[in-house]
Amino acid sequence: MARPPQPPPRPAQRGATRQSQNGPKKPAWRTQGFDFKLYLRQHQAFLVESFTRLIGHPLASIMTIMVIAISLSLPGGLFVLLKNVQSVTDQWEQQSIISLYLFPNLEDTEALSLSHQLASRADVASVEYISKEEGLRYFEQSSGYEQIMSTLPENPLPIVLKVIPKAIVDLNTLPELQGLRDQLQGLPQVEHAQLDAEWLQRLATMISFGQRFVYAISALLVIAVLLIVGNTIRMAVESRRDEVLVMKLVGATNSYIRRPFLYMGFWFGVLGGLCACLCILLLSWWVSSPAARLIELYHAGFELQSFNAVEIILCLTISAMIGVIGSWVAVSRHIRDIELQ
């Protein structure tokens, strides 16, 4: 075999050598066009491939998915509970009343003119004037203390104005009504103003407490899912170490090697989220009949709510994102660490 012929002179490459001394340059072979269609097709292939891999190890995959599902269904279930409590109060369409107890020494005429004045306010629907005598009658009827009352030398009750605000009381209008109550309390003729929505205030406090509780639990469980996905993916990378090495050897970029694992995380997230949604729907269905009886007892016109379509999509989106982020964190570190030797 003869020695290879002398290479012809290559002025361009010699030039390239000199160029490199002048400043940074990009080798010509690195400039390649970006083919978007190809990029999409590759992603599609990875999506399918990673799903096939998941099915390839059914038991391990199912266990991971179930752990994710359980971790996600807890905050999801609490969310549904909270939603129902809120909807009970929202549907409670009740006219609230602010009772104004006027000073006892106030004259009837002054009280009446105050009553008219209040009735003309924009945020007040009507004002009911309850004279001292009427008040006494109500009191006797409702409390059964006629005898005691009749022994009193004079009527101890003040004139009461029952102010009915235009706004229906619920959690949204509560601050507004409380503002109105405070305003009326400030009137010189009013000794005491009472908004009969104390229970609602308590409920509002409880709901805001419940919300924070749900947020905290959700945050913790989201972190747990991130760790679960991260760990599962890390093990998947480890089990495909040889493949990663060969891919690096034949010139795969880190992002290319990362991609199937990100899709795997995506599938774990989506499937875990889907199972969580199923769990929640199943749970809602399971409690629906006792809940219906409970509602019947209270004659409340509301229906038990579960996840609606928007919330299911939201849940799936969030869980998919958690899956991708969890695997991203695990994979990026790990693939950098696997180096050819």
Partner: peptide, 25 residues
């Protein structure tokens, strides 16, 4: 080390995969 006149020290981490694609091993 010059490969086609390009000093390999000038190639950063991200250039390595593209360099390897030109070499069969």
């Amino acid at each position: 080390i010059l490969v086609d006149g390009v000093d390999l020290r000038t190639l950063g981490k991200h250039a390595i995969p593209y360099h390897r694609r030109r070499v069969g091993v």
